[in-house]
Simulated assay, not measured.
Amino acid sequence: MHVIELARPDTKAFQRVVRPDPAAPGDRQVLVRMRAASLNFIDVAVVRGHYPAASYPNIPVADGAGEVVEVGAGVTHLKAGDRVAIHPKAIWVGGRPTRERAHIMRGVTVPGSLTEYQLVDAATAVRAPDHLTWAEIAALPITFTTGWSSLKMADINAGATIVVLGTGGASLSTLQLAKAQGARVIVTSSSDDKIERAKALGADAGVNYRTTPDWHERVLDLTDGVGADLVFEAAGTDTFPRSIKSVRQGGTVFTIGFRTGGVAELDLMAVIVNGLRIIGTNTGSADDLREAVRAVASTGLRPVIAQTYGLDQIEAAYEAFAKGEAFGKTVFDIAW
């Protein structure tokens, strides 16, 4: 079978190689022909050598989607021909995270999605909603699992206010899921055009952090001085202190990103006095993805796709994604 291999942590180290076809699926396994994959910041960290657990050489990209071509014994919820999103945590089916469950990740420690076929645990393959394209299915796993987990952990219901930082895939999926639950959403961006596009997706208000550097004060204004129930913290060092200042008494800062750095100053008095919850996440389980996909199916949501690349454009796709300027997800069409 054809695969894309990352030989070492270097954007020039992608190569197309041929590997043996996978074996027939064993007990509770499925064989999937891959059709699409989508980039997340962890994929950039791997290719830059900034993710300590990553192994090389490896098949890159955590998130992917494909068509089931064969099922093993004991698989009853899937059949040949089903379209599936493949959860990136290869053994984290459900329950709380453990060191092992969180560590084993496609495209990082085990082979990822840029391959002709993948043999996976059937419990980590989630049947996709019929209304989605291959690109949209590939955009589901990390971003929608993460967005769904943030809303669930912060107890977000109708009438709550959340702030999402930026307009990348995770932030937009959280926006969409929050609006489907009746929440009010404030989005931050350095672009007025992107704020307007986010409003077209349902955002109730936006703050341009380039023209309003103290954007947390605008959040407080928009919430009558109360603050947000949840801040979806997707950036890291540059934004974390203001995220703390944006959240209400007893509110939640849900931190997922390190695009601007992984070390942040923390005002402990603000955390203690205001009873804040700071939750870090490394996505969630396959069961969490399954819940998010049910929400997508029932509401008709469609992930936002920024751009689709072919397998002959891998370096360009990574470089464009790393700039952080895309509105939505960057996707690969897996066609050999």
Rank of each mutant, 00 (worst) to 15 (best):
L6H: 11
L6G: 05
A7R: 08
R8K: 15
Q15D: 11
P20Y: 10
A24C: 05
G26A: 03
R33F: 00
S38D: 04
L39H: 08
F41H: 15
I42M: 05
V47S: 12
V47M: 12
R48H: 05
S55K: 15
P57N: 14
V61N: 00
A65M: 06
G66W: 12
E70H: 05
G72K: 06
V84L: 00
I86M: 01
A90S: 10
A90G: 00
G94M: 08
E100Q: 15
R101G: 14
I104K: 02
M105S: 10
G107D: 00
T115F: 04
Q118G: 00
L119D: 11
A122T: 02
A123S: 10
A128P: 00
P129C: 09
D130N: 08
H131R: 01
A135H: 13
S149R: 14
A154W: 12
D155A: 13
V164E: 12
L165F: 04
T167A: 10
G169S: 15
G169R: 11
S171W: 01
L175Y: 12
L177H: 09
S189Q: 06
S190V: 01
K194V: 01
K194F: 00
R197E: 05
G202L: 04
Y209E: 09
Y209T: 08
E217S: 07
D224F: 14
G225L: 11
G225F: 14
A228W: 10
D229A: 08
L230T: 09
A235T: 04
T239A: 11
R242M: 14
S243R: 03
S243P: 02
S246M: 13
R248A: 09
G257W: 03
G257C: 05
V263A: 10
L268Y: 12
V271H: 15
V273N: 01
L276R: 03
I278P: 02
T281G: 02
G284N: 11
S285F: 04
D287G: 06
V293E: 04
R294I: 04
V296C: 07
S298C: 03
G300K: 01
R302S: 12
V304M: 04
A306E: 02
Y309A: 12
L311Y: 01
I314E: 05
E315N: 13
A316Y: 13
A317Q: 04
A317F: 03
Y318R: 11
A322P: 02
G324R: 02
E325G: 11
F327L: 07
K329F: 09
V331C: 01
